[in-house]
Design a protein around this nucleic acid. Structure first.
Length: 186
DNA sequence: CGTGTTTGACCCGCGC
DNA sequence: GCGCGGGTCAAACACG
């Protein structure tokens, strides 16, 4: 059971492969809403997703949050370090944006992240934080942004795919990714 | 002491 | 060409 990588296997392998994804998702703005319970995990999310009833109890510190996610692919993400591929494709890596209703922007998905930057975004009072997976050889990045309009909404954008198992035993994020696969498999 | 955060500088693409 | 906005680097710092 170490096929975490397969989750993101829908990367930009083909020129048109990404289009199907973005077309369906971006245009229709896939939007799911469920209520989680723990601020430090997507477990509640998954639980509610599969079984809307479940035990949505949880006594977290009173941090109830509803999560929704939008999946889309942003193209033209070529960086300066394009050692391989001489600009054959503009599509580099898919990005997954999660919209999370939470008061904390630190969402523990089971991976270990190292913050490597923070920038102020225009049209947004709150800064955007850049994180990178600390696993060696793993180039997965993620950025967390908070909407100035709704400071209760936190947008987490994942970029790239993990090629290693989750470090923590939270294994909840895996399920989410699995769900995402369904949508991105269109 | 190792690991992660802070923070300003730098880099690069893009529009004017 | 220049300025702007977004993304990254890296040195210094904080914390266990």
């Amino acid at each position: 059971m170490d096929n975490y990588s397969s989750i993101f296997s829908c990367s930009s392998s083909s020129t048109s492969s990404a289009s199907h994804l973005s077309l369906n998702m971006v245009n229709s703005q896939a939007y799911l809403e469920f209520q989680g319970d723990k601020a430090n995990g997507f477990l509640g999310l998954m639980t509610n997703m599969g079984a809307p009833n479940s035990e949505a109890n949880n006594n977290n510190g009173g941090v109830s949050q509803s999560k929704s996610f939008v999946v889309g692919t942003e193209i033209n993400d070529e960086m300066k370090s394009s050692e391989k591929k001489k600009g054959e494709k503009k599509i580099r890596k898919p990005r997954f944006a999660f919209q999370t209703r939470s008061h904390v922007d630190i969402l523990d998905d089971g991976y270990r992240w190292r913050k490597y930057g923070q920038k102020a975004v225009k049209n947004n009072k709150f800064p955007r934080s850049y994180y990178r997976c600390t696993h060696q050889g793993c180039n997965v990045k993620k950025q967390v942004q908070r909407l100035s309009k709704d400071e209760g909404i936190v947008v987490t954008t994942y970029e790239g795919m993990h090629s290693h198992p989750i470090e923590k035993s939270t294994d909840n994020f895996e399920h989410i990714l699995n769900q995402m696969q369904i949508y991105t498999a269109f």
